[in-house]
Design a protein around this nucleic acid. Structure first.
Length: 416
RNA sequence: GCGAUCGUAGCUCAGUUGGUUAGAGCGCCGGUUUGUGGUACCGGAGGUCGCGGGUUCGAACCCCGUCGAUCGCCCCA
């Protein structure tokens, strides 16, 4: 009989522990706190949906649907997909549960999402996002509130050197006209573009604008700008958003090349990106966007619902956690050392009392008396309680700036 | 999907002109010293050198494949 092999973790998944885990929950807890300040309602969504929920909203033709989703048939033969994002699922729930009655609905959630991609820095196949959406609000003030909340989350996380990059994609007509102009412009120099961009010209021409290839960059600089195609309504909308951001004190900069790949996006598109040369930019490598989103007025209709304006964003928890700095392990208020097992019951009762009184408490009751004591001493705690092996008393010491002060356990917690 | 680098004890890593029983620190377990005690010392457990082939008298070290990790490209909802 050979020894059974230990299974490996699935590629692109991660086991989070210690300081990384503490940073992770710090991000989630900060998000939860800020989301309540803006009165976003918490929603919980299924981790998987019918494949069509994502396929129809994202668009059947893209690589995303054909190559980058975790799709499988369940035992009934139905095609299901692990959620690659929150937005489509929330939109589906909005329609199937009649959440229209709550419109405009401010919804927030967080949890795991799944994308079948090559793992690299800050990029995993199962990763986690925080997410915020405002559904059923057509007015630019919704965009402003949503962005103000995002800005506050980042600031309360203590992350420095992040700038909101903001653009407008205009309404549907604006977008189509701009796209046609770009295709014409880049088509004229097709042979001089990178191979990738020649392909983008056919599949997703807007994406040429954020190509990193120097052969493309020089043409991008001179490419037609969206502003020339904005309708009056679209321009007014964008102006209202920027004025609102200024009033809210949210710093932003115009990013004329910032686009969204999917057709359902309208008007506002944005990403929060670390400034060049900052610690945050170095920490993230090529995965630089820490929060992104936009207005998706076209999504609901693609799911068979009534035209419903909406705007939202999502941010990767792991990427944010990389930027929040070291979060210490949980501290202890008290450590309890049982030097001899004969008084195990009393020690268990004591730690229970301390914990019920709100003390973060650890009991050391394994190994030699010396090892127990030494381990306890390595934990920074305010109170050290020992049940010595040599006498019958409980020793309680309070550690402070002025050294150790002995006191009675009864002065800390009451026993019946 | 493409490219580069890497893969040695639980963790961090040493280990080349390929040559006998593969090392350290930390951690873990046991013990000694000290002795109201966060120290020091001694000892122990733990590795088919990611996995599978190949070259060679002989491979952790060279070659191929594979899996995984890391970084970049593509993609980015």
């Amino acid at each position: 009989m050979s020894k059974p092999k230990t299974p490996q973790a699935i590629r692109g998944t991660q086991d989070i522990f210690g300081p990384d885990a503490e940073a992770f929950v710090f991000v989630v807890e900060t998000f939860e706190r800020v989301r309540k300040l803006y009165r976003f309602r918490r929603v919980e969504m299924p981790v998987f949906e019918r494949t069509e929920v994502f396929a129809r909203s994202i668009g059947e033709t893209t690589d995303i649907v054909s190559k980058e989703m975790y799709t499988f048939d369940d035992r009934g033969g139905e095609s299901l997909t692990l959620r690659p994002e929150f937005t489509a699922g929330i939109a589906r729930a909005f329609l199937t549960n009649g959440w229209q009655q709550h419109a405009p609905l401010k919804a927030a959630t967080h949890g795991p999402v799944f994308r079948y991609e090559r793992p690299q820095k800050g990029r995993y196949r199962q990763f986690h996002q925080i997410d915020a959406e405002i559904i059923g609000a057509a007015e630019p003030q919704a965009d402003v509130e949503l962005l103000a909340m995002a800005d506050q989350v980042i600031r309360e996380l203590g992350i420095e050197g992040i700038t909101l990059h903001l653009n407008t994609l205009g309404d549907a007509d604006t977008r189509d006209a701009w796209r046609a102009a770009l295709v014409e412009y880049f088509g004229a120099v097709r042979g001089e573009l990178s191979e990738d961009s020649q392909e983008r010209l056919d599949k997703n021409p807007l994406r040429i604008l954020d190509s990193k290839d120097p052969r493309d960059r020089k043409f991008v600089a001179e490419a037609p700008k969206i502003d020339a195609f904005l309708s009056d309504d679209a321009q007014r909308f964008f102006d209202a958003v920027t004025r609102g951001l200024d009033a809210a004190g949210v710093k932003w900069q115009r990013a004329e090349s910032l686009v969204r790949g999917l057709d359902y996006y309208r008007h506002t598109a944005f990403e929060f990106i670390p400034d060049e040369g900052t610690a945050a930019a170095d920490a993230l490598g090529s995965q630089s966007t820490i929060l992104g989103g936009g207005r998706y007025d076209g999504l609901m209709a693609s799911l068979g619902g009534p035209a419903t304006p909406a705007v939202g964003w999502a941010a990767g928890i792991e990427r944010l956690a990389m930027l929040v700095g070291e979060r210490g392990e949980i501290e202890a208020d008290a450590v309890v050392v049982l030097e001899d097992d004969s008084r195990m019951g009393r020690a268990i009762a004591t730690v229970k009392k301390l914990r019920e009184a709100g003390w973060k408490t650890e009991l050391f009751a394994h190994g030699s008396p010396r090892k127990r004591f030494d381990k306890a001493r390595k934990v920074p705690a305010h109170v050290l309680v020992t049940f010595p092996v040599t006498d019958d008393k409980v020793s309680t010491r309070v550690m402070g700036d002025g050294g150790e002060v002995h006191t009675a356990i009864e002065s800390l917690v009451q026993f019946d």
